[in-house]
């Protein structure tokens, strides 16, 4: 009777095993269980009762778990390649996000009016969708070719010269913040240069810029472009270096000058809401730009203090 329980147990384990090893493992398990029963019976000097046999099987664990011990445990990404995989995954998501913003801007440029509330979800969904596909492909590539990749080969041309200088504690650049900065700057360059419409969607809202903007536009564009370029560099190598910190600090100077010039004008920007007959114009007073200028000066000063400590640590 007790052998029947053992056979049932071995049979249950067998059902969870691949055909190739099924009979072999089950036979060995049955033999082991029979030997264990014999040993216990010998110790007790009597045959085991059904309850005792069931207790033994209980100790061995659920057949599924017993079978699992004999199954290979393949991993999609090997442990040694995981850091490379994770890095590539981050770069891929960033590249997809940038590509989606560019596509969104180009598409917006082709239509007469811009619907921001349509464009933003479109870019977000596009990035998420693209990232999911990218994640699947990258994982598949690592799964298929991971065994043949040796991580030492990937970095065999690495030289200690390329090591970044030691920066102050916590002076690494946040990639999330930089990615947002890059997206905002790209969008702003496109918007101020009318690559995308400056009116907001189908609403009869229009921004009217003072004549002086025309002269400042190349300077503002150049400034924004340099900032965007710097953001892209920070995204690729997210740690502070002396040139990066100095360039970022230097960019505060033209920004302050431009804000200073704009704050001198009477009505730098006004907004017109409504149709021709019922249109209402609201002027953004120069005072707002003066407040903006002062606010920016405070931010730039704080940044200067923070970066001064960092630059000292790097020198």
């Amino acid at each position: 009777m007790s052998n029947q329980w053992l056979e049932r147990y071995a049979y249950a384990v067998k059902s969870h095993l691949p055909p190739k090893v099924r009979n072999d493992v089950a036979d060995e398990l049955l033999s082991d269980l029979q030997d264990e029963c014999d040993y216990r019976a010998e110790t007790l000097e009597r045959d085991l009762t059904d309850d005792e046999v069931q207790q033994l099987l209980q100790e061995r664990g659920h057949p599924l778990l017993v079978a699992a011990d004999f199954l290979p445990r393949p991993s999609l990404i090997s442990e040694s390649l995981f850091p490379i995989y994770a890095q590539l995954l981050r770069w891929m998501v960033m590249a997809i996000a940038i590509a989606q913003v560019c596509v969104g801007v180009i598409q917006a440029a082709q239509v007469s009016s811009l619907n921001l509330w349509q464009l933003l979800p479109q870019i977000t969904w596009g990035t998420l969708n693209g990232s999911l596909y990218g994640f699947a492909w990258l994982t598949l590539i690592f799964y298929l070719f991971g065994e043949s990749i040796n991580r030492a080969d990937i970095f065999k041309n690495w030289k200690p010269d390329s090591l970044p200088k030691v920066t102050a504690q916590g002076a690494y650049i946040s990639r999330t913040g930089t990615a947002i900065e890059l997206v905002v700057l790209t969008y702003f360059i496109a918007w101020i240069n009318r690559v995308i419409p400056q009116s907001l969607g189908d609403n009869p809202i229009e921004l009217v810029f003072a004549d002086g903007w025309h002269n400042l536009l190349p300077w503002i564009t150049a400034l924004m472009f340099t900032s965007a370029l710097l953001a892209a560099v920070k995204l690729v190598s997210p740690y502070w270096t002396r040139p990066k910190a100095l360039i970022e600090l230097a960019l505060h100077i033209p920004t302050l000058i431009i804000l200073g010039i704009i704050s001198q004008w009477d009505a730098p920007v006004s907004i017109i809401i409504g149709h021709e007959e019922t249109a209402k114009q609201f002027v953004f007073p120069a005072t707002w730009f003066t407040i903006g200028l002062l606010g920016y000066a405070v931010v730039a000063t704080i940044d200067l203090i923070k970066k001064r400590g960092m630059l000292r640590a790097m020198s």
């Binding site: 082991d32 061995r60 664990g61 778990l65 017993v66």
Partner: peptide, 10 residues
């Protein structure tokens, strides 16, 4: 335990 030994033997 058996769950360690038998898979190791294989």
């Amino acid at each position: 335990d058996e769950g360690t030994l038998y898979p190791l033997l294989r």
